[in-house]
């Protein structure tokens, strides 16, 4: 997607990747972010990172993405609050697919993620291939 300000140099650099679906990984653990980035970049995504819900919201307001991969437990703003907040935004933001991941596998955890508005909830640890499969399916990217 070209933005109106695409004439300046920094924006133009982004145009090169405009064909790639963009995903924002929201997780406070740098290891998890690295692991997801590795998987998603290999799957053809352009990856950005945020360390909590607040930072993610800030980034989304600047530039929406095609997919969010969101952790549940994070400082400052947790994943559930973040997704709830997201779903109350204007449609362009509210409709962004959310893949939520957590180490918790209990029924109540899944239900909480659903209620917040996560499109799918997967239990960590997640094989990189699995993440890539789900990310492609959710974002509509060609495999």
């Amino acid at each position: 997607m070209l933005t109106p300000s695409s004439t300046n140099g920094r924006r133009r650099a982004r145009v090169v990747d405009a064909d790639k679906p963009r995903v924002l990984v929201v997780d406070d653990a740098s290891l998890v972010r690295l692991y997801y980035r590795d998987a998603l970049e290999a799957a053809g995504f352009q990856v950005d990172e945020a360390i909590n819900g607040l930072e993610a919201l800030e980034k989304l307001l600047l530039a929406p993405v095609d997919l969010l991969v969101v952790d549940v437990n994070m400082p400052r703003m947790d994943g559930l609050t973040f997704v709830q907040t997201l779903r109350r935004q204007p449609m362009e933001l509210a409709s962004i697919p959310v893949l939520m991941t957590s180490t918790e596998a209990g029924a109540q955890d899944i239900a909480a993620a659903r209620a917040a508005g996560a499109n799918v909830y997967l239990v960590k640890p997640l094989a990189q291939e699995t993440l890539a499969d789900y990310a492609r399916a959710l974002s509509g990217a060609s495999a």
Binding site: R87, M91, N119, S139
Partner: peptide
């Protein structure tokens, strides 16, 4: 957040 959830569900279906 219902309308947001509906919009995202529809978007996911379209993507699938």
């Amino acid at each position: 957040g219902l309308s947001g959830r509906m919009a995202s569900a529809a978007r996911v279906c379209a993507n699938l």
